[in-house]
Simulated assay, not measured.
Amino acid sequence: MKGYLIDIWDDFDPVYQRIRRFSTITSKDNIPVFRVHVNKYRGPEQVLSDGSIITKGDYLVRIHLHNIRLLQHLSLIKSKTRRTMMLYQMVSEALPAIANYIRNHQLHDQIKAIWGVTMLNKLVGRLGFDTKPIPNLYYRLLKYSSQIPIHILSTGSFSSIFEKRKVSYLFMSKDRLLKT
């Protein structure tokens, strides 16, 4: 069943990528890790740990894990700890490619940070990200519910969705990213 769902998702994914106009960011091993696009931030003001301030209307690079490719790549690894460490390594290796994406973007001077929404909150601080709560309850629930199918496919467990999981914003300032 899981294999069929991943196959269907894999068939639909190129259409979704074209509609959303994503650019793909790969790891050193040429594994697609992120999909990114530049947009204007519309959330509440955020003060990051390095002192950067993100306000409405600032240009940010929105990052999305390329879940289908990561699921396909990590699905053969049985150990949850090993999968986590592999994902951490792939994300770490892809961050310099996001920095290059920003350097080469036409709005590179105006881009202030990268950001995303995640349920994976444990190791992101080590990568240089700040996690921030999502204050809007409805948006938080929408994001949580949209990530449940991904979570079920990645863990293979329905019961784990009832564990307390926090959906958060992730931010990293452009200055911090360019230092990686």
Rank of each mutant, 00 (worst) to 15 (best):
G3M: 06
G3C: 05
Y4E: 09
L5W: 10
I6P: 02
D10E: 11
P14R: 12
I19G: 04
T24V: 15
I25F: 08
D29C: 11
N30M: 12
H37L: 14
V38G: 07
N39G: 08
Y41K: 08
Q46W: 13
V47W: 15
L48D: 11
L48M: 09
S52Q: 07
T55D: 07
G57R: 04
Y59N: 05
V61R: 06
R62A: 13
H66F: 12
R69N: 15
R69Y: 14
L70N: 03
L71D: 08
Q72Y: 07
L74P: 00
L74E: 00
I77P: 00
I77S: 01
I77C: 01
T81N: 03
T84K: 09
T84M: 09
S92R: 10
A94S: 12
A94H: 07
L95Y: 14
P96K: 15
P96Y: 15
I102G: 03
N104G: 04
H105R: 01
L107C: 02
D109W: 07
K112Q: 05
G116Q: 07
M119T: 00
L123F: 14
V124Q: 05
V124I: 09
G128E: 10
N136Q: 10
L137C: 11
Y139E: 13
L142T: 12
Y144P: 09
S145T: 08
S145V: 07
Q147G: 04
P149R: 02
I150Y: 00
S154M: 03
S154W: 02
S157W: 07
S159D: 02
S160Y: 07
I161G: 01
I161C: 01
S168D: 08
L170N: 05
M172L: 06
M172Q: 01
K179I: 03
T180D: 07
